[in-house]
Write a protein that binds this DNA or RNA. Structure first.
Lengths: 185, 185
DNA sequence: CTTAAATCCTACTAGATTAGTCTGGATAGC
DNA sequence: GCTATCCAGACTAATCTAGTAGGATTTAAG
C-alpha cells in the first residue's frame, strides 16, 4: 500500500510550492525545491514535468525561472494529485468510484472483501479528497510558528517575476483545524 | 494504492476458507477454491504456499487433501494477511508503526505530508487491524441469508479428513455489526 | 502394489514499474 | 553572447507482476 517515491516526491514538491506561495515566494526554482526536500534534482525535474502536464504547476523558463502552482492551493485536494501520480485510491478495482473494474468473483453483491475494501476506500478518500494543499500548509505553518521554527523560503533573496497575488481566500475549508492540531510527532 | 492481484487473491482465498469452515467444510481443495473465486489454479497454488509459509493456512497432502485455516478466523485480522502479502499498510515509510523508515525531508516533526499521511495510515489500520476474517464471514453470510442466496461450499459432497471442530466462539468482536450492515452494493 | 488425486517445489517468462541518470535543446535575463 | 534555468527524451539496472510449466512427493483407495 505504499506510494511510489515519485508520488511521494510529487506531494512534497506540491506542498513546498504551496508553502512558498503562502510565505510570499510564489515561484521556486527546481534546484531550490530539490534542495529543500533533499531530492535528486533530475528525478524531481521529471516529476515536475509530469505535474505540469497534469495542470498542477506552471513552469517559467529562462534565467530566474521556476515553478509555481497553477491553481490556488485551496482548490487542490491532495487526492487529485495522488490520483494523477498513482492512479485510483481504492485498494481493489471493484470499489473504485473513479475507475471501477469488474472483478472475477462470482457475486459482487455478496463479496465480503468488497464490503470491507469499500470501507477502506471511503476512509482514504474521506481524507485525501477533503483536505487541500491549503489545509496542509495551514497546519504546517501553524505548527512551525508555535514551535518557533523558522519558516522556509522566507528570507532568501526573493527572485523577480513573482506574480503579486497575495492574501489567502479566508480559509474556506477548515474542517482540518480540529483534526490535525495536536499530533504528537 | 491498489493491492497486487496476489494480495487480493490471497484475501479472497482466506475469506473463502473462513466461510467454508463456518459452513461445515473446514478443508477446501485447491481446484475447488480456484473455481469458487474464478482464479488461475497454478497462480493460486503459489499464493497458498505463501500463506502456508506465513502460518495462515495448513496444507493436507495426498488424495482428498486441501487447505484449511491454521487459526480460528476470529483471530486473524485482515491487516495481518495484507501485511504478509503486501508489506506495511502506511502510504509512506515515515508514518509506519510496524516498519518505520526515516524520510529525507529536513524536519519530520513539521512535515505536513507526514501529518496527513499519518491520518490516512490510522484510517486504514483502524479498519484492517480491527476486523477479522470472522467479521467478514459474519457479514457476508448474514447478507447472503437475508437475500436468499444459497451459501457456498454447503451441499457439495463433503470430503473426508475434516476435523470435526464446529460452532463459533460466540461472536466476540462485533463492532462491525453496525458499520457493514447496510451497504447498498 | 499400483494408480489416481492431490499438495509441494522450483524454475521460467514477458512485460511493466521503479528510481533514477544522461544528454542535449530552448528560453529568458544580464 | 553568456549563463541559469526549464523542457524533452532516451537510457538503464533492478525489481515486481501475473502468471505458466513440469515434475516430485504424499495419501487414499482398489
Amino acid at each position: 500500500m505504499k506510494f511510489s517515491k515519485k508520488t511521494e516526491y510529487a506531494l512534497r514538491a506540491m506542498i513546498d510550492l504551496a508553502i512558498a506561495h503562502e510565505v510570499g515566494r510564489p515561484l521556486l526554482g527546481l534546484s531550490e525545491l530539490a534542495e529543500s526536500e533533499r531530492l535528486p534534482v533530475k528525478f524531481l525535474e521529471q516529476i515536475l514535468k509530469d505535474l505540469k502536464q497534469g495542470g498542477f504547476v506552471l513552469g517559467l523558463r529562462g534565467k530566474f525561472g521556476g515553478y509555481q502552482l497553477a491553481e490556488p492551493a485551496a482548490r487542490i485536494p491532495v487526492g487529485r494529485i495522488v490520483r494523477h501520480m498513482a492512479g485510483p485510491l481504492a485498494p481493489i478495482g471493484c470499489v473504485s468510484q473513479t475507475a471501477y473494474e469488474k472483478c472475477s468473483c462470482p457475486d459482487e453483491a455478496h463479496c465480503g472483501l468488497r464490503m470491507l475494501m469499500l470501507d477502506v476506500r471511503n476512509a482514504i478518500t474521506g481524507i485525501l479528497d477533503r483536505y487541500t494543499l491549503a489545509d496542509v500548509v495551514e497546519v504546517t505553518l501553524r505548527k512551525m510558528r508555535r514551535n518557533g521554527v523558522s519558516l522556509p523560503f522566507s528570507n532568501k533573496s526573493a527572485r523577480t517575476r513573482s506574480s503579486p497575488q497575495r492574501g489567502r481566500a479566508s480559509a474556506s475549508d477548515t474542517i482540518i483545524r480540529d483534526l490535525l492540531t495536536d499530533y504528537s510527532i
